[in-house]
Amino acid sequence: MSTISEEARALHADAIVIDGCSFFSQGWHERLAIAGVTALQMTVPWPGDDFRRAVRRYQHYYRLVNEDARLGLVTSTEDIRQFKREGRVGFILGSQDADILETDPGLVEVYHRLGVRVIQISYNERNLLADGCLEPTNAGLSRFGKAVIREMNRVGIQVDLSHVGERSSLEAMDISTKPCIFSHSNPKARADNPRNITDEQIRRCAETGGVIGLSPWPPICWTGGPNPPSLDDLIGHIEYVVDLVGIDHVAIGTDSEATPGAYPKELRTSLGATYGPVTGRFQETHPGVRHTAGFESMEGFPNLTAALLERGWRPEDVRKLLGENLLRVYRESWGA
C-alpha cells in the first residue's frame, strides 16, 4: 500500500475508530494497534447457540478484559470516549443471531444486563423472529420478532439488520423506535450478492437515523468484474451510500478476526456448507482470493483514512465514517 501521510496518521490516531463488525478475540494483539481501533463490536455466540452456550461465550470476553488492562468492556458510548482517552480498546458485545433468545423476549433484558449491546435479528436463514437473506420466501417478521424488537428498543440494545431478509429488515425498520443499523453490508446496486442491500433498505435505514457499515469482506465487496476486490471498490461502496443518504449514515464493519487465526476451523467448515449463494460465484471467479487488496483485515483501517483524505474528503467527514456516526447511533439506541 502507498505510504500513509503524516496528516492521515495524525487524524487516524486522534479519531474514534469503531469496527462495527469483528469477531474471535483471544486477547490483546498488535493488530488492534495497527488498525487504530477504539472499539470493536464483537460477534460472540455461534449460530444456533442457546442461552447457556451464549452465556459461556460471553464469559470469555469478561475474562479477556479482566486479564489485560489494555482491553475494556463497552456498555455505554461514554465508555468508548473514556477508552479513547486512556488508549485502551473496547469490546462491544454483540450477536449475529437471535437463537440465543430461545423463545423468550424477556431474555433481551437479561442479555442487556450481561453487557450485550448489539443483536442481529437473523442470520441468513429463517429463525423464530425473521427471515434471513438466503430464504427464498422473504417473509416478514413473526409475532415473536416484533415483540423482541420492541423489547430491544425498551432496554437499549442496538437492532442490527445485516444478514436479514429484505422484507423482514424493512418491517423491522418500520416498527423500531430507535435507529437500526446494517453492521456489515454493501449496496446491492454495486455488488450484487444476497448479503448486500437494496437502495430502499439503505434509504429506510437512514430514515431511522441509522448507519450502514460498509465491509471489505471480499465476497460482498467484489463488484463482479474480472478484478478481485480492492480498497477502491470499498470506497466506491462508501461514496455510493454517501451520495444516496448522506455522510451521517456510513460506517465500517470489517467482518474480520480481532486475533488473526482465531476463527474456529469447525465453524468455518459448518458455515461454509450453507454459504454457496453468498460466496460461490466469487470463489469460482477468484479462487484463492481471501482479502480485499488494501484492506486485508482491520489492519487496513489507516489505509482507508489516507485514501479518503487523498480523495479530498474533509477530515470531519472521515471521522464520521470511522466512528462518530456509529457512536451517535449507539448512543441513541443504548440510551447511554
Binding site: E125, R126, L128, A139, G140, L141, S142, R143, G145
Partner: peptide, 22 residues
C-alpha cells in the same frame, strides 16, 4: 401457532411459507 425455524404457525399474520430448513 407461532413461527419456528421450519415455517409459520396459523396465528402468524405474515405466513411466510416453508423455510429452507423446513
Amino acid at each position: 401457532n407461532d413461527r419456528t425455524w421450519t415455517g409459520d404457525g396459523c396465528l402468524e399474520p405474515v405466513d411466510g411459507g416453508l423455510s429452507r430448513f423446513g
